[in-house]
Design a protein around this nucleic acid. Structure first.
Lengths: 301, 301
DNA sequence: CTTGATATATGCGCATATCGCAATAGATTC
DNA sequence: GAATCTATTGCGATATGCGCATATATCAAG
């Protein structure tokens, strides 16, 4: 025999309101239905929960004992269900987003402000990590969404291209190249170059792209973080090659960002999701938002 | 739309066992049924709980969030229901019995031992109180059953006669009346009488019965409890008039209990229940037991 | 690439549970 | 004793849920 939630709920409401009619109105059914539910429940349990004349309803000893438990059950049940319904209806809830630090610092703040406007009560748990860690986080469901860099494909992951992020040349205004419209890789052969560590996806990607074209770079300095590199440039230590998105024009006075061509090397910024995994409504809302957003950089072709 | 316990249970079992088929076997239904339950539940909630290919089942982010709650709900539900079913099937549970002290000391121990044999895990909460308090306790449902003395009827109470409890004459063996087969009220006119306080139902009843026949008694001593009266008799202070059930032949060496006639005055010991109130299975079992029991005293006519 | 094994989804028909309406029956009030 | 209030019951209409057979998708093996 199946467990009968309706019956228990009927019992609680009747006990609470003290009558079948009041309970029926409250539950939006006829009083007849409640009579039947209680009868069925009592038959199933093989005991009486309510002593009722045609005039009065009263709890039996067993009913009194059961009522608090029943109240808890019904309460938790309806609470949990309505939480879930609410979650779907209003895209409410929390989710985890994994993101590489560059993007976390540049495009994410805007996105999160935007998201907060449409879903004010949602929380995004932000996991900032290296490109590889972002992929792993999405793969093992630590994060529902990941913002990372296109690299090796994985059969269980879906990638949605967001925009291209070309490598650019960063220097002080005092640098002889600073007035150029664009700079070629060969222009920098004797510059004091600051590059990011070869533990980062940016560097690995860059080396790979240049090697294909037979270009080799001698970095004078190697740092861990993009932000550090920019600070060094600002301090006049040298020039840097960094993704365009690292920097917005005007972020730092005295620092210029110049397109780097021959060839143009650009990493693809992507949104990562797991295949065959339905997003939670909260994450889905973010996904829709990010797809609608136009980023201020070259859109992916 | 109605809240669907089956769906939630299906969700939990599927999540726990990792597949529809295993869950179907566990729930003794076909796999088809589970597919439908989950579909219905997801449609109702308007979100996905399980990501499933035809090959694999996996929780969605929302599903993972919901699972612990669902587990609690299902657990409490089934636990509560099976407790109730067990209660009815094995007459398990506890109940409260109100009882006048005389009976609590004499017939109850036997009954409770008997009851413990058939329902070993049940507890009887014993409320020993005056005859009036017993009635009140049953009336306001503090106790399901009451053992008391017949007196005024009450429209909301049912009385089941148990046995008649005649008043008897108690004296030491050294008393001149001790060898008599019976004693009349007039025999005791000049004895040192010990009677219970006129705050007790026994005394009120006795006075009323005697007054009807124009007999008046001069009590030399007045005590609160029957047990005290007997102790005084044993100590040779005087003779006492007490209900027969107070005392079993041989309880106290040297004390005799002699029928008191002309007239025979007997109080009726009754079992009190509330009208229109279904007894709990535990109390019901006790009720049946007490009705089957033959008491060693005059059965009620 | 095809085939077989395995796990979920679906079409369909049946059994029955559940509901609402209308009428009934029990209890209280005046 | 009539009026009234409340729970119960008979009955027909409908919805729900199930199982069987089958379809479909995925993975593994040859």
């Amino acid at each position: 025999m199946k467990i009968d939630f309706d019956g228990i709920q009927a019992f609680v409401v009747i006990a609470e309101l003290g009558g079948f009619n009041k309970a029926a109105e409250h539950l939006h059914v006829t009083q007849t239905a409640l009579t039947r539910r209680i009868q069925k429940l009592e038959a199933y349990l093989d005991l009486k929960l309510l002593d009722r004349t045609t005039r009065y309803v009263e709890l039996t000893a067993v009913g009194r004992e059961f009522l608090p438990q029943a109240r808890v059950i019904v309460g938790e049940m309806t609470a949990a269900v309505s939480r879930l319904k609410d979650m779907s209806k209003n895209s409410r809830g929390n989710f985890t987003l994994a993101c590489v630090p560059t993007m976390a610092g540049q495009i994410l703040p805007k996105l999160m402000r935007e998201y907060a406007k449409s879903c004010p009560r949602n929380r995004i748990r932000l996991l900032d990590a290296t490109s590889y860690e972002v992929r792993d986080a999405v793969l093992n469901s630590q994060a529902e969404l990941g913002i990372g860099i296109h690299g090796e494909q994985h059969p269980d992951l879906n990638e949605t291209p967001l925009f291209d992020d070309p490598l650019m040349f960063f220097c002080r205004e005092s640098n002889p190249l600073s007035s150029r419209e664009s700079v070629t890789w060969s222009d920098m052969s004797d510059a004091d170059l600051i590059v990011v560590s070869n533990l980062t996806a940016t560097r690995v990607f860059m080396d790979y792209q240049l090697a294909k074209r037979g270009i080799s770079l001698s970095g004078a300095y190697e740092v861990q973080h993009h932000a550090t590199a920019i600070s060094l440039v600002a301090a006049g230590v040298g020039c840097a090659i960094l993704p365009a998105s690292t920097f917005q024009e005007g972020d730092r006075p005295g620092v210029r960002r110049i397109p780097l061509v021959s060839p143009i090397v650009k990493r693809k910024v992507i949104l990562i999701t797991r295949k065959n995994n339905t997003l939670s409504p909260a994450a889905e809302a973010f996904f829709e938002l990010i797809k609608k957003t136009h980023f201020g950089l070259t859109p992916t072709t």
